[in-house]
């Protein structure tokens, strides 16, 4: 699963720490999600997308290649 969190974060002038506070997880979780090492739950993916005013599909890109 790829994602556009880093790009969207920069567009919104948001740090990893600020995003992590807003969605209620640790900064380490945001680092892991951004780098694609950890796939968030549907609930967390919704929360992250909401922070950027986007839909899940705009933030997370599903690809079958691993």
């Amino acid at each position: 699963m790829q994602n556009r969190i880093k790009t969207l974060r920069k567009e919104h002038n948001m740090t990893q720490e600020a995003l992590s506070k807003q969605v209620g997880v640790s900064r380490q979780s945001i680092v892991a999600i951004e780098s694609g090492k950890y796939n968030p739950s549907l609930e967390l993916a919704f929360k992250i997308s909401q922070q950027f005013g986007c839909t899940i599909e705009d933030v997370f890109i599903f690809s079958e290649e691993r």
């Binding site: 992590s20 506070k21 997880v25 640790s26 900064r27 979780s29 999600i33 950890y38």
Partner: peptide, 10 residues
């Protein structure tokens, strides 16, 4: 530090 999150559980 909000460390007890879903990744920590995972």
């Amino acid at each position: 530090e909000r460390g007890l999150d879903e990744m920590q559980t995972h």
